[in-house]
């Protein structure tokens, strides 16, 4: 059964003083709170985040920049290992964080499908079987045999989304991916996401686009300074938003 259970999830890491002879790089990963002093200085990127998702859920992650949305997605995907709490995931996970990631500018769209497939762990036969379907869904037509560098951002987004969803991941994690696609493709993509969720999958989508989240998601998780502020149904969250907007007026 496809599910995600996160319990008191926490991620903190030391602000490393890189050994360097030059000026120190004081950048930290985007988001989180910087706490402690001197050698104990650390970033708390996620703090006591608990939630559960079941098959069919479409979760919208909201929060200001740096609230921890991307960090949470990356913990769910397995890029960051949580330092506190636990996360239990049942189901095949795929992610779309960065549209251009893994695409080679000089290679054709077709070759890029092969490479992305290999990176996702697909066998050459699996790639062959899905190739035509990916090309049709991406609507790239004859462009598929041109170098990726000749694609517009929207075309790149279409190709990335088509590949990521072609293998029917049971859990799909997405970070602000949709802004680049044209409205027609956005509708098509939303339809595919709904189909995925109906097939008992889970979608987690981090976005500032409330209109998109309202149309797509049934649950909302709001993060504030790396802590969970709200986890409720989308209806309830947007209802609260509407009433707070009204009271402000």
């Amino acid at each position: 059964m496809v599910s995600i259970h996160a319990e008191n999830l926490g991620l903190s890491y030391k602000v490393r003083q890189k050994m360097t002879l030059g000026l120190r790089d004081r950048r930290v990963l985007a988001g989180g709170r910087i706490e402690g002093m001197g050698r104990d200085r650390h970033v708390t990127a996620l703090d006591r985040v608990s939630f559960s998702l079941e098959a069919g859920d479409r979760l919208g992650l909201v929060g200001a920049n740096g609230a921890g949305k991307t960090t949470l997605l990356k913990v769910l995907y397995g890029i960051y290992v949580p330092t506190k709490g636990r996360v239990a995931i049942e189901g095949r996970v795929d992610a779309l964080f960065n549209i251009g990631l893994g695409f080679r500018p000089e290679a054709t769209g077709r070759r890029n499908i092969e490479l992305r497939g290999l990176i996702n762990g697909w066998s050459p036969d699996e790639i062959k079987v899905r190739m035509d379907e990916i090309i049709v869904f991406s609507e790239l037509g004859d462009f598929i045999d041109l170098p990726f560098k000749s694609y517009s951002q929207g075309m790149a987004a279409r190709l990335a989304f088509s590949i990521a969803t072609s293998f029917e991941p049971e859990i799909l994690l997405m970070d602000e991916w949709i802004g680049a696609g044209d409205p027609n493709f956005q509708d098509k993509a939303r339809q595919r996401m709904n189909e995925m969720a109906e097939k008992a999958g889970i979608i987690v989508l981090a976005s500032h686009n409330h209109g998109l989240l309202k149309k797509t998601c049934n649950k909302i998780l709001e993060l504030h300074e790396s802590r969970l502020r709200t986890f409720c149904s989308a209806e309830e969250w947007f209802g609260k938003q509407a009433s707070s907007d009204e009271s402000r007026l």
């Binding site: 092969e114 490479l115 290999l118």
Partner: peptide, 19 residues
Amino acid sequence: RLHRVWVALAHEDIGDQHR
């Protein structure tokens, strides 16, 4: 297990450098 990935990427790297 993912040997196909690094073999393919390495070939692409060499190809890109001289394309």
